[in-house]
């Protein structure tokens, strides 16, 4: 058994943690920069939300979003622009661009009642329109609003059906 000079165990732990942090930050530099840019405004929103209690939609993951969508329990709502929606969207989703939803009553079909489960999505984790849209929908009186943060990219990567005239 090779015997290595031992340094203080705590320093060794600190060294490993430091190394992991360095590697992790270097490896995910772009992602972290993106998250930070989106994060500053989001942090303020979270602080407000703590006061406004539960005005922020809950996140759902890919599997749950798919399950709710397939079983017809939830309506998927695309927060991106109408153009992007036309190009490609999750099959069966409704288009509700964030800009269009800013008015008094979001233009959703009558079949969507305040108790319908609504899942907002946009272009993945770096896109915050779905979260904003979710908040608007909650304000507008919809009670079961969720955000699928993985959005179209995660859905597409999973091989789930999309629709639109992309070609």
């Amino acid at each position: 058994m090779t015997r290595m000079r031992s340094i203080h165990p705590l320093s060794e732990i600190a060294l490993v943690v430091f190394l992991a942090t360095l590697l992790g930050v270097a490896w995910n530099k772009t992602l972290l920069t993106d998250a930070w840019r989106g994060g500053t405004s989001q942090a303020a929103v979270v602080a407000q939300a703590a006061q406004a209690a539960e005005a922020v939609p809950m996140p759902v993951g890919l599997a749950q979003a798919k399950e709710l969508h397939d079983s017809g329990q939830a309506v998927l709502v695309d927060a991106r622009s109408a153009d992007s929606f036309t190009k490609e969207h999750i099959a069966g989703a409704l288009s509700l661009p964030l800009a269009a939803a800013s008015g008094k009553k979001p233009p959703l079909p009558k079949s969507v009642t305040p108790d319908t489960i609504i899942i907002a999505y946009c272009n993945g984790f770096s896109c915050h329109d779905s979260m904003e849209l979710g908040k608007l929908l909650i304000k507008a009186g919809y009670r079961q609003v969720f955000v699928f943060e993985g959005g179209l990219p995660e859905w597409r990567d999973a091989g789930y059906p999309t629709a639109g005239g992309a070609s």
Partner: peptide
Amino acid sequence: PYFWNYVAAAV
């Protein structure tokens, strides 16, 4: 909080 989810996921 939002940003720290990414830091945790990175490290």
